[in-house]
Nucleic acid binder design. Structure first.
Length: 200
DNA sequence: AACTAGCTCAACCGCATTCCT
DNA sequence: TAGGAATGCGGTTGAGCTAGT
């Protein structure tokens, strides 16, 4: 029905990007700005599909991409946001300047899932596993855990907001983007009355 | 030194959503 | 308003690296 967004006719490169390809993409975007991704590869002389170029730019080549280890406060923020938003990686990443959705997703799956599990918290729904052995010896784990307790249990028990104890955490939210990305229409709005301001 | 298991992360894939005519 | 094109998103894969045996 719909034609594939990438024509896999066999003349497109796949796999890791070479330095030359990176440079071509950087040079082209510097010269022309962000144009149509579909036409970019041809115009830039790249044997890649537009999707691949977009991903490479957003996740790796963008000048404002922050690389390296996640700070402890970033970890806590990811955990809190995941408790509220679920696997909405792009929304979570939008709250972490310089981080990409792919990076956050990878970090969640490789580090934070295990961290929460080791603390006796189900990483999928952020609820305490009652019969789990809790490891409270690690100080950062304690801090993280207590923050999660506040954010999740606090929500669950927030009767004045009308939340029931068994309310699902997959809430509808009103979320404003970081100021650098915000536009007049750039926000998600829910029609229900449950509005959580994630940050004051 | 050689092998293996586990981990990390860049990249791919397919579906969903938005945009445009 | 419908339908196709373009873009965005989240799940998954696999290559490369490292630690353990």
């Amino acid at each position: 029905m719909r034609s594939p967004c990438c024509d896999n006719r066999g003349n497109n490169n796949k796999g890791a990007w070479s330095k030359e390809e990176d440079q071509k993409l950087i040079d082209y975007i510097r010269a022309h700005g962000r144009v149509c991704w579909r036409s970019l590869p041809k115009a830039a002389g790249l044997l890649r599909c537009g999707k691949s170029c977009r991903l490479r730019w957003i996740n790796y080549l963008r000048p404002d991409v922050k690389r390296g280890r996640f700070e402890e406060d970033e970890e806590d923020l990811i955990i809190k946001l995941h408790a509220l938003l679920g696997n909405r990686w792009s929304l979570i990443a939008g709250r972490l300047p310089g981080r990409t959705d792919n990076e956050v997703k990878n970090y969640w799956n490789s580090h934070l899932r295990k961290k929460l599990a080791s603390m006796g918290i189900d990483p999928d729904n952020h609820r305490v596993i009652h019969n789990a052995r809790l490891h409270r010896s690690h100080s950062s784990s304690n801090a993280t855990r207590s923050s999660i307790d506040k954010s999740t249990n606090g929500l669950q028990n927030n009767s004045e907001n009308g939340f029931r104890d068994d309310d699902d955490l997959n809430l509808d939210l009103t979320i404003s983007l970081p100021s650098s990305q915000r536009t007049g229409s750039d926000h998600l709005q829910n029609t229900a009355s449950r509005t959580l301001l994630l940050f004051p």
